[in-house]
Structure formats: C-alpha cells, structure tokens
Amino acid sequence: KSSGQLMAEWGLDDVDYLFSEEDYHTLTNYKAFSQFLRPLIAKKNPKIPMSKMMTVLGAKWREFSANNP
C-alpha cells in the first residue's frame, strides 16, 4: 500500500511535501529521511502511534527511493 492509502485507512492527515533535487542529494539514507519527515508527520498527527509512524515512514521512504532520479 502507498503511504497515502495507509494514512487514509487510519484516518490520519497525509503530509504533502514536494521533494527538491537537493533533498534527493542530502536525504541519502533512511535515518536522514526519517529525521527529516517524522516531525512533519507528527505535527499534522500528534497522536499517531509509533507503530503506525514507522509503517508510514517506511512506505514514504520506498516511494522517495523509487522517485529518486
């Protein structure tokens, strides 16, 4: 499932962030990516359980990696 599908299924607000060329150069591993995106997700979904946060971050990382030029 996509991150958007997961968040909709769980009734969470998705984070629409348009990644720049620079993001693809600086966010080169999962740790850097999650440190960048986790606060954005948490801000829109302050009560998100950690298990769902990790699942969403994993899905967003897969999508980000697939779109990386």
Rank of each mutant, 00 (worst) to 15 (best):
E9W: 03
L18G: 08
L12V: 08
K47F: 14
D16R: 02
Y17W: 05
L12M: 14
M7E: 02
T26N: 13
S20M: 07
L18A: 07
H25N: 12
E9K: 13
K31H: 12
L57V: 12
Q35G: 10
W10F: 15
S20T: 15
W10K: 11
S20V: 11
R62G: 13
E9C: 06
P46H: 02
T28A: 09
D23G: 01
A66V: 08
S2E: 04
M7K: 03
K44Q: 11
Y17R: 04
A32P: 00
H25A: 15
K1P: 02
K47N: 06
K60Y: 06
Y17C: 06
D14L: 02
K31G: 08
G11M: 05
Y24F: 11
Y17F: 04
T28L: 10
A59E: 07
E21D: 12
K43V: 04
F33E: 00
L12A: 10
V15P: 06
F33R: 00
G4W: 13
M53V: 08
M54I: 11
D16Y: 05
E22S: 13
G4T: 14
Q5R: 08
Y30Q: 09
K31E: 15
A8T: 14
T26H: 13
W10T: 07
P46Q: 04
E22V: 07
Q35L: 12
K1G: 04
N68A: 12
E9N: 09
Q5V: 08
A59R: 06
M54V: 14
K31Q: 12
V15F: 08
L57N: 04
N45P: 00
W10E: 08
M53T: 06
A66G: 12
Q35F: 02
D16Q: 06
A8V: 12
R38L: 15
W10N: 12
F19G: 03
Y24C: 09
D23T: 03
R38S: 13
M7D: 02
A8M: 14
K44S: 03
S20G: 13
G4Y: 15
A32L: 13
G11Q: 09
E63L: 04
G4S: 14
K44G: 14
Q5E: 11
E9P: 03
Y17G: 04
L12P: 05
F33P: 00
T28P: 07
S3R: 02
Q5F: 04
Y30S: 04
E21F: 06
E22Y: 11
D23I: 05
A32D: 15
L12K: 00
A66L: 15
W10C: 05
S20Q: 12
